[in-house]
Simulated assay, not measured.
Amino acid sequence: MARRDLTGAVDFGYLESYAAGDLDVVQEVLELFRQQAALWAPLLAPGQEGWPDAVHTIKGTARGIGAGALAQACEAAETHGEGCLPAVRDALDAALSDVAAYVHELMLRSLKTPPAR
């Protein structure tokens, strides 16, 4: 698959391999990641009481999809504190952008591929 518009924030090869090439599973996992991000992202601001839980949860989901830079940013925030939250937000935005581009590409690909009979 062509990987245009991807920054490398997510290693989709890792995720595809982990899902044994089942793109339906990959899409489901990525949708869960997007839902998690939507729930936790509002807490990624200095002064938000729940930011440590948000960072920890996002770190786990990032590792699950192959978003290494995001997982590292979360780990830095866990270690060094809320001053690292802007880097977490930036890494989350990059991962979400890559996920959107990847899912879009899958949708385009499905339009070009005739259904199996």
Rank of each mutant, 00 (worst) to 15 (best):
M1L: 08
A2M: 11
D5F: 07
L6W: 00
L6E: 10
G8I: 06
A9G: 04
G13R: 15
L15F: 10
A19M: 02
L23C: 03
D24A: 07
F33D: 10
A37G: 07
A38W: 04
A38E: 05
G47R: 00
Q48V: 05
E49I: 13
W51Q: 02
W51A: 08
P52S: 10
D53H: 15
A54T: 12
V55R: 01
H56Y: 11
T57P: 12
I58E: 02
G60M: 06
T61I: 15
G64D: 13
A69I: 14
A71T: 06
A71K: 06
C74N: 01
C74P: 01
E78H: 11
T79G: 12
E82Q: 04
G83F: 02
G83P: 02
L85C: 03
V88R: 06
R89F: 11
D90P: 13
L92N: 09
A94E: 02
A95D: 01
A95G: 06
A95W: 03
L96K: 09
L96A: 07
S97D: 06
V99D: 00
A101F: 09
Y102T: 07
Y102W: 13
H104G: 12
E105P: 00
L106S: 03
L106Q: 11
M107V: 15
L108K: 08
L108C: 03
L108H: 02
K112P: 14
K112F: 08
T113A: 12
P114V: 14
P114G: 11
P115F: 15
A116L: 12
R117K: 10
R117Q: 03
